[in-house]
């Protein structure tokens, strides 16, 4: 009796092995599903939280930030430092320096929630690389915005941008860090 049971066990065991092999062979002939990362990238989902960035107003091509410092106050990790100045011919202050200490940031989103002007948002950058630590603990969001604005001006139909809008005061403090020091993002 036990012999028969053992024999049955061997047979069923072997059949289960064959089933396993059939499944792997089936997978073998199916197409590849992995993303070849440096060559292909995934589009980040809408709720992905990268480091925060200043929103580029599509109307004006400038930041909406008025340097009200609500985000600075809302931040639980005190990793935001905003500086603003009142420019001539404008009713509100506008941001001149927006420093994010990304090394402390926990991506909680309190700043985004707190902003009354919807001036900051999460970026979709997930591979932020730099050669210096400064690029992370003194992340210069105004400069990052300026870089994006160039692309914006180039894509914008030529008749729209008035000449006045284009020159914005360069961030006065701290000589602009070298490009290598800035977070690099692949195109």
């Amino acid at each position: 009796m036990t012999t028969i049971a053992a024999f049955k066990e061997v047979c069923t065991g072997f059949m289960s092995l064959l089933t396993g092999m059939r499944i792997t062979l089936g997978q073998f002939f199916k197409p590849i599903i992995t993303v070849q990362y440096p060559r292909q990238t995934l589009k980040m989902p809408a709720r992905f939280r990268g480091h925060i960035r200043l929103v580029l107003d599509p109307e004006t091509g400038k930041s909406r930030c008025t340097a009200c410092k609500l985000c600075e106050r809302a931040c639980p990790s005190t990793c935001i430092a905003v500086d603003g100045a009142k420019l001539e011919g404008q009713k509100t202050k506008s941001v001149t320096d927006y420093r994010l200490n990304f090394t402390n940031c926990s991506l909680c989103g309190a700043c985004v929630e707190a902003c009354p002007f919807d001036a900051i948002e999460f970026s979709k950058e997930y591979n932020v690389v730099a050669f210096t630590r400064d690029a992370f603990d003194k992340m210069d969001l105004v400069q990052l915005l300026a870089a994006r604005r160039e692309a914006w001006t180039q894509n914008r139909p030529p008749e729209a941008p008035p000449a006045q809008l284009a020159p914005t005061p360069a961030p006065p403090p701290a000589a602009a860090p070298s490009p290598a020091g800035q977070p690099q993002t692949p195109a």
């Binding site: 997978q27 073998f28 199916k30 197409p31 590849i32 992995t34 070849q36």
Partner: peptide
């Protein structure tokens, strides 16, 4: 390569 295909990835490429 075979290991890759069985795991639905391309293997060394």
């Amino acid at each position: 390569k075979i290991a890759g295909r069985i795991q639905r990835r391309p293997g060394p490429n």
